[in-house]
Each structure stands twice: as C-alpha cells, then as structure tokens.
Amino acid sequence: MSMSRAFCVLLGAAALSGCAGAPVETDVLHRAEQILIGSCMARQNLKYWPQPKSWTPDMDLFPYVVDDVEWARENGYGRTRRQELGKTAAPSEKYFRALPEDRRRAWLTTFHGDRAAALEAELPIGGTVGHSANGCAAQAWQELYGDKGRWFKASRVIQTLGNMRIGQTQADPAYRAALKRWSECMSRTGFSAATPLALRKQLLAQQGADAESNDKKAATAEARCAMETGLSKTARDLDAANAEALKKRYPEEFENAARLRESALPKARALVSEQKKGNLT
C-alpha cells in the first residue's frame, strides 16, 4: 500500500527524489480520498471505514534498516503501532466477513469496479497495469484529481519508481558489502540475520509477554550495527543518489504527479476540514 515516505523526509529530499510527495500533502490527499470513497460507498448503502495510509509505518520510516537507536529503544520494530492499526481494521473486516457471499461480491464490485471500463498505466519497469474505471476508488480519484486516468497513471508510475529506487539501492555492490558487515556485526551481538528485514519479520512473528522487549533489544542492536558498519550511511547515500538519477531520467512523470497533487490539494483540504467540522460522514 505504501512506499517509504518517512525515509524520504529523513533524507530531506521529498520534493526532489523518487518519494511520493511531501508527507503533509500526501496525508491530506489520502484522507480526502478516503472521505470520497466513503461517501460513494454510502450512496450504495454500503459501509466503508477509512484506511490508513500505511499498515507498516516502521517500513516507511526504515525501508532498509532501523538506524535510529533512540527510536529502536523506544519502539522496537513498531509492533505497538502495527497492533493499533490492526485494531482500526477490525470493524471493517468484521462487517465484510459477515456479509453474505453475494453482498461481498457486490461490495467489491462497488469499490473496485467491474472492469468493463479500464484505466491503464504503462510502468517504467515494464508492463501495463490496469484498474477498473467505474468503482468508488476510481470515482474518488476523478473527484479529487479531476482526471482519474491521469492520476492512476501518475500514481502507479511514481509508486514503481519509488520501488525501483529501493531495488537499485539494495542491488548496489556497496550496499551489499555494507549488509555483509552489518550481518557480521549482528552475529557478534547474538543475533543471526542475513538482512534487517528478515530479522524484523522474525521478531514481529513472535508472540508472548517478552515479544516487545525482544523487539527492542534486537532493533537497538540493529541500529547500532547499522551505524557502526556504515550500512545506514551507505543506504541513505545510495537512496538519495538513485532518487536523483530517477528524477533526471523520468522528469515528466515526477512533474506530472506533482502537478496533479498540487491542483488537488485545495479540494482535499476543504474536504478534510468539512469532515472535522462534522459536515461530512
């Protein structure tokens, strides 16, 4: 669902890099989109709960490696936040699961559309991704951005470029060398892990009373090793360089997305404001 937004902020490169826009702006746009989807679903007598922008905010903050010792000591791998987000999802999941089969299908069709009309986006990495044009999601894009087709293309392209940035960084020999040093450092602290993500997944899969304190120990060790071995700096430097290179390679794509976001912001702010006042459901 999301890319590495907060990492972009940490880099201070949100406006320039492959990141998906400044966080405050994307927050407002996301909330407005959710309001519009909810209104559309309600018109069909279907319930919809707004979705968070990300289910894994820890990954947004640290897409490569947790490298903030203080954050790690306090949050571990973000287990508590993930659990909080999970709780927000419970009502919608319960509602959907309770629907009869035909109503579930109808709900999905109302939300996604029926594919009779298609939006398409050619991806810079290859392929043409498609999406229905007549569901509530697409209708929200239309209302917010004024052109659902243009927004679909822009959003999928920018998302792909963001993922390309991370993939390029991880494939870089300098990153892989630093990763090896990091793994050796972790071994010396008693943690066996080939990659930070593998360790994070392993820890987050654990349950029980000690789970969170174990998270914090591992994440703190991860952050210290990231700093000591240079993995943190290597990842951030490469990420910034790759972001800049992608921006130079795909200037129109980034500018197009930025224009669409900018033009949608006034409406988005108004929608969010109206909802805060209680004028919208």
């Binding site: 990495i125 290859g126 991704v129 498609g130 494939a171 990659t195």
Partner: peptide
C-alpha cells in the same frame, strides 16, 4: 500486484522486479 489492479501478462514485459536482498 496492488489491490484492485490487474495485469494482462500477454501485453508488455511485466517482470519479476523484487528478490530478497539477503544472502539467501
């Protein structure tokens, strides 16, 4: 494949774009 998206794989060159970044 993102939520709501579909790919007609016969069109264009969709590629496997990710792999574990670890030693395994």
């Amino acid at each position: 494949v993102g939520n709501g998206d579909y790919w007609d794989l016969r069109r264009g060159d969709y590629v496997f774009s990710w792999v574990n970044d670890g030693a395994d």
